[in-house]
Amino acid sequence: MTRLITIRPGPRARVLAGALPIALLLIGYALAAALRHADNPADKVLPTLGAMGAAAWRMGTHVDPVSGQIALVADTLASVMRMGAGLALATLTALVLGLLLGVVPLARAVFGPVITLIAVIPPIAVLPILFIALGLGEAAKIALIAVGIAPYMTRDLAAYVAALPAEQVIKAQTLGANSWLVAIRVALPQMLPRLIETLRFSMGPAWVFLIAAEAIASDVGLGYRIFLVRRYLAMDIILPYVAWISLLAIGADALLRLISARAFPWAHGDAR
């Protein structure tokens, strides 16, 4: 008997099945936009796909005579740099602290509560502090991303390392490993695939913090642009920007997955 839970779509059927809701969304949007424009040709709330394409093209090719830059390119570069710096800072912090807390019970006893305390503070609430302490420049935006995700990543990694089978640590010691070698040759390598995974899960919050920081104090960046053109109700720019941010996020996620699969074949089921 066929049951709902036993129906498994094949590879081609899966692609089709996955594309269907997206196509429906697009068609639904196009219909709604067409209906509104039939009523009012100057409607700004639901721009037509054509209008969005034109606006995106303008943002992506038109060189601003004042700054000498292409808006989309300048915004993307600025945002990606901030994101990269923030993620790098958070990753490095989580790597070092996660390893230390995971391997050394004493360090866990000392730093665990502090990190838990920091982790429960909503990062946006400390944004004013960061602006006051670090100024309105790049440092505060980068710091917000790092402060926002590093505690979660650290706790996740520390818990993961601490949960490695005790047998492995005993075995390593009987093979002559000291604490340092247990850390760098047993715990560290096994924690790296998890680091990439926790980084992937932290990308969503990281984007939120970046866009929030850019919306509040910036003169370039994807978040800055969206909040700038909002004043003119320029949905034809906002929506392509949102789509572009999603594309960047999907690309970053795919890149991280690829790196993990290539670098750590043993951590991915079929380790061939």
Partner: peptide, 27 residues
């Protein structure tokens, strides 16, 4: 635990992130 005493458990005795040769080289 020191290297004069070797041990084999029912599970988790080898390092999953090292190859077979790497596991023996470890010691």
């Amino acid at each position: 635990c020191g290297p004069d005493r070797g041990v084999v458990f029912q599970r988790y005795s080898v390092f999953p992130h090292l190859t077979v040769l790497g596991n023996v080289l470890f010691g």
